[in-house]
Amino acid sequence: MTEDRIRRFDEPRPVEVLHDGEWVPAMQDGWVRWPDGDWYASVSYVLEHDWGRGRYVTSVPADEVRPVG
């Protein structure tokens, strides 16, 4: 992947991510341009499940991430 497809933050920023219809706290460390030209947020977050904690490290479309505050 080339630098024109990745925009990293110096420090991750707190955001909320849409997960199964609910906004959950997450950290965003940058933006990634997918091959179709759309920008996706690079995020990570942890959720509690009945089987234990699940850590998510993924990218989500821009309309599924919002800044906190």
Rank of each mutant, 00 (worst) to 15 (best):
E3S: 12
S42P: 02
P61V: 03
V65R: 10
L47Q: 12
V24A: 03
E64M: 08
W39F: 00
Q28K: 02
A62C: 03
R5K: 15
D29T: 05
V24C: 03
R13K: 15
V68C: 12
V60E: 06
D29Q: 03
A26C: 13
R33D: 05
V32N: 03
P61Y: 04
R13D: 07
D36H: 13
R13F: 14
S42Q: 14
G30T: 12
V60W: 01
Y45I: 01
G52D: 06
R55M: 06
R53F: 13
P25L: 04
M1P: 13
E16P: 07
D38P: 00
L18W: 08
D20G: 04
R8T: 14
M27Y: 08
P35Y: 10
A62G: 11
V57C: 11
D50Y: 02
Y45W: 12
E22I: 06
R7P: 00
F9A: 11
D29K: 07
G52N: 08
I6H: 10
R13S: 15
A26K: 07
V46M: 03
E64I: 00
V15Q: 08
M27E: 15
Y45K: 02
G52M: 04
F9N: 14
D20Q: 09
W51D: 08
H49N: 01
E48L: 09
V46P: 00
H19I: 02
W34D: 12
A26S: 09
D63K: 06
S42C: 08
D10P: 14
D50A: 04
R55L: 12
V15A: 11
A26E: 06
E11Q: 15
D50G: 01
V24N: 01
E16W: 04
D20S: 07
G54K: 14
G54H: 14
G21H: 08
F9E: 15
Y56P: 02
L18R: 05
P35I: 06
D63E: 14
G52V: 10
R55P: 00
G37H: 09
S44L: 05
D4G: 05
R5N: 15
E64G: 01
W34E: 10
R7Y: 04
G54I: 12
F9H: 15
V68K: 13
Y40K: 06
D38Y: 04
I6D: 07
D36R: 10
E3G: 10
D20T: 04
D63F: 09
T58G: 07
V65K: 11
L47W: 05
P14L: 08
V32P: 01
Y45V: 06
G21S: 04
R5C: 13
V46G: 03
Y40D: 09
W39H: 00
T58A: 05
H49I: 02
M1R: 13
W39C: 01
H19Q: 10
V68R: 12
W51E: 09
R55T: 12
G30A: 08
W34C: 10
A26G: 12
V65I: 11
G69N: 09
G30D: 10
R7K: 13
D38G: 04
W23G: 05
L18D: 03
